[in-house]
Computed example of a mutant assay.
Amino acid sequence: MRKLTVADLPDGGTPATLAALGTGWGPVIRGGISRYDAPGHRTHDESNPHTHDVPEIFTIVQGSGYVESDGTQVSRFQAGDLLIIPPGEDHHLVSDGAVPLVFTWMHLGSL
Score class of each variant (00 low, 15 high):
107 H>I: 14
48 N>G: 11
32 G>Y: 07
89 E>A: 11
11 D>I: 09
37 D>C: 06
14 T>P: 08
88 G>A: 08
21 L>E: 03
72 T>H: 12
110 S>I: 13
44 H>F: 11
34 S>D: 15
61 V>P: 00
102 V>L: 09
12 G>A: 07
4 L>K: 08
82 L>A: 05
70 D>T: 14
104 T>I: 04
3 K>V: 12
67 V>I: 11
13 G>W: 03
39 P>F: 05
90 D>Q: 05
43 T>M: 04
63 G>M: 00
62 Q>D: 01
70 D>P: 01
85 I>Y: 00
70 D>H: 13
70 D>F: 12
14 T>Y: 09
28 V>Q: 11
59 T>Q: 11
62 Q>H: 10
54 V>P: 07
11 D>R: 15
34 S>Y: 07
61 V>T: 14
44 H>V: 10
91 H>C: 05
78 Q>F: 00
66 Y>E: 09
19 A>K: 03
19 A>L: 09
48 N>A: 15
44 H>K: 10
1 M>Y: 06
94 V>F: 01
100 P>H: 01
14 T>I: 11
82 L>D: 07
46 E>S: 15
42 R>H: 10
80 G>I: 08
30 R>S: 14
2 R>S: 02
107 H>N: 15
108 L>T: 00
77 F>D: 02
36 Y>I: 03
12 G>M: 02
84 I>H: 01
56 E>F: 07
18 L>Y: 02
86 P>T: 05
26 G>E: 03
66 Y>N: 03
109 G>Y: 01
27 P>T: 15
5 T>D: 09
101 L>R: 04
93 L>H: 00
15 P>W: 02
71 G>H: 01
54 V>F: 13
74 V>G: 01
76 R>Y: 08
81 D>S: 03
30 R>A: 14
7 A>V: 13
31 G>T: 03
51 T>L: 01
53 D>Q: 12
40 G>F: 04
1 M>F: 09
96 D>C: 11
78 Q>L: 10
41 H>C: 05
107 H>Y: 13
35 R>G: 09
90 D>F: 08
1 M>V: 12
84 I>N: 00
49 P>Q: 11
60 I>A: 06
42 R>F: 03
100 P>S: 12
69 S>W: 02
43 T>E: 06
43 T>D: 06
75 S>T: 10
49 P>A: 12
68 E>F: 04
56 E>M: 06
39 P>Y: 07
84 I>M: 05
95 S>M: 07
73 Q>C: 07
84 I>C: 04
89 E>Y: 10
17 T>P: 05
86 P>F: 05
25 W>D: 03
2 R>I: 12
22 G>A: 11
85 I>H: 00
14 T>C: 13
45 D>K: 07
26 G>V: 02
36 Y>W: 13
38 A>C: 00
34 S>A: 15
108 L>P: 04
98 A>D: 14
80 G>M: 09
69 S>H: 00
51 T>V: 15
23 T>I: 14
42 R>A: 12
47 S>Y: 07
78 Q>V: 13
109 G>R: 03
5 T>H: 03
20 A>V: 13
66 Y>K: 02
6 V>P: 02
94 V>S: 08
98 A>F: 07
101 L>K: 00
26 G>K: 01
83 L>F: 08
